[in-house]
Write a protein that binds this DNA or RNA. Structure first.
Length: 479
RNA sequence: GCGCUCUUCGUCUAGCCUGGUCUAGGACACCGCCCUUUCACGGCGGCGACAGGGGUUCGAAUCCCCUAGGGCGUACCA
């Protein structure tokens, strides 16, 4: 197998076999496209390096976090095949730890209580903006020594001199002057810790040595690094993957269409198509387009992840889905299509073999939903015929065609594709009728419409009894 | 506004580090032709990009500088 070459081979700060990565969604909604890709990259690298993939639920925002969201995220990861080695670990179970870290920082003078009110803060921000300054906290309470009996938040004392820099495994070196940073709130008035604080503690305590997360966190990273140091932790390595944008180059959101990966399942997409699409958005391996999960585990590397944001392209996802449907195992696809049909109240228990049905449809549909639609006639005789089609192909003058069909097919014992084809050939030869004169009529009689797989296949898969019954029925309803 | 960052066909990208092999390759989409009993599949072909401007160099998509545009951040959200 051809592996993708490394472009920037520079050393890691730890042994790759000790790799520990994590995916840390906040349960405030379903798993969206961007999150899924982040999870996928983490998973792939962990698998490739035989490291450990941890799942952590970031539910410090009590207002917006829900158990339904946790379930939805877990379900989506399962569908995509992204299994984790440890977790899920809930931050809400770890408040004692966070509290003790806040106290420690307070005791060491590395954090302080801030009594400024939200109103005061907003006013200060506006004032700063007005004179062209940065809308940051001005440090009013930083050196305060009294402890009034008032509500307060705890802020981290961010260093004011020098700069903070790190080597991003995707974007390269990123540097920010410390005086651009302000003193972050690490504990809210209600006593709950905030994201930027707990993420540092958790990543460190869980031994995460490579943080792979969205691009939108680069700014947080430079704020978090001083906290790792203050807390006495080793700073992990970082890899920030670019954002996924909509067609208008704006951050992908609902108005660009479905953003929940599970909605794609409902729309008839296969998980391998979604995985393949997601990984190729921002990562490449030469000219290759098709990757199985095993290919990816062998070939994935952060070195081939691009630095620029990518536009989500549903057309390409659809193409990949088409590919995986075309090449998928008929038995497996049959199971999925059966689920769809049963959901629509179609009884598939005594119809033709599902796998055989699937095989006639694999080359002509792009989604499982389309496949289910196309498969429906195999299990349900047409209740009515397409009006225009019937007017054209089920006319009185087609009576002879139907009668011949019944005669020849009735005399055919086995309905293998070869035998069916043989019967049609014999009929055409002896009657002088061309397939063009017969095909459309059979199709309408058997399927009710003008679009279907090849008629030989349809006749073969439907089986003798069903075919003859439907032909008779058509005969009886000629116009 | 300020900070960080990005910029190759409409879109995803190869190439850029190690300048010549690039009249810039592949894929999706689109268009055309062929195949064809329907719808599709498939085959073949076409359209189409180095953001702009300056340098450096015999030579730049590749190195340097500037400009423009985009994204993200600037919360007691994560």
């Amino acid at each position: 197998m051809r592996l993708c070459v490394k472009k920037h081979p520079y050393p890691w700060s730890f042994k790759m076999s000790d790799l520990r990565v994590r995916f840390a969604p906040s349960p405030t909604g379903f798993l969206h496209i961007g999150g899924a890709r982040t999870a996928l990259f983490n998973y792939l690298l962990a698998k490739k390096e035989q490291g450990t993939f941890v799942l952590r639920i970031e539910d410090t925002d009590v207002e917006r976090s829900t158990q339904e969201s946790v379930d939805a995220i877990l379900q989506a990861m399962d569908w995509l095949g992204l299994s984790y080695d440890e977790g899920p670990i809930y931050q809400s179970d770890r408040y004692e730890l966070y509290k003790s870290k806040v106290s420690a920082l307070l005791d060491q003078g590395l954090a302080y209580r801030c009594y400024c009110t939200t109103e005061e803060l907003n006013a200060k921000r506006e004032a700063a903006m007005k004179i062209g300054g940065k809308p940051r906290y001005d440090g009013t309470c930083r050196e305060r020594t009294d402890q009034p009996d008032l509500p307060y938040v705890v802020r981290f004392k961010t260093p004011r001199d020098g700069n903070t820099a790190f080597v991003d495994r995707i974007k390269g070196t990123i540097t920010v002057e410390n005086d651009e940073l302000d003193d972050l709130i690490i504990q809210r008035t209600d006593g709950n810790p905030t994201y930027n604080f707990v993420v540092v503690i958790d990543d460190a305590e869980m031994g995460i040595n490579l943080v792979i997360r969205g691009d939108d966190h680069v700014n947080n990273t430079v704020r978090q690094i001083p906290m790792y140091k203050a807390l006495g932790y080793e700073v992990p390595e970082f890899a920030h993957v670019p954002m996924i944008l909509g067609a208008d180059k704006k951050r992908l959101s609902k108005r660009h269409g479905a953003t929940s990966v599970m909605v794609y399942r409902e729309m008839g997409f296969l998980p391998e198509a979604m995985v393949n699409y997601l990984v190729r958005l921002g990562w490449s391996c030469g000219d290759e387009e098709i990757f199985s999960m095993d290919d990816l585990i062998a070939k994935f590397s952060l070195d081939n992840v691009g630095r620029s944001a990518g536009v989500f392209n549903p057309d390409k996802l659809l193409w990949l889905n088409e590919h995986y449907i075309k090449t998928g195992d008929p038995e497996r696809l049959g199971g999925l299509v059966a689920e769809q049909l049963e959901g629509q109240g179609v009884d598939v228990s005594d119809g033709p073999e599902m796998a055989a049905v699937v095989q006639t449809l694999q080359d002509r549909v792009k989604t499982l939903v389309e496949m289910a639609e196309g498969a429906r006639f195999y299990f349900e005789a047409p209740v009515s015929y397409d009006e225009a089609a019937a007017a054209k192909f089920l006319t009185e003058e087609k009576r002879v065609v139907l009668e011949l069909l019944i005669k020849y097919l009735g005399a055919t014992v086995s309905f293998t594709l070869e035998d069916v084809e043989g019967a049609f050939k014999a009929m055409m030869e002896e009657s002088g009728l061309k397939l063009g004169k017969i095909g459309p009529t059979v199709r309408v009689a058997l399927t009710g419409g003008t679009v279907s797989p090849s008629i030989y296949e349809v006749v073969s898969v439907l089986g003798k009894a069903t075919v003859l019954a439907r032909l008779q029925k058509a005969l009886a309803s000629l116009v």
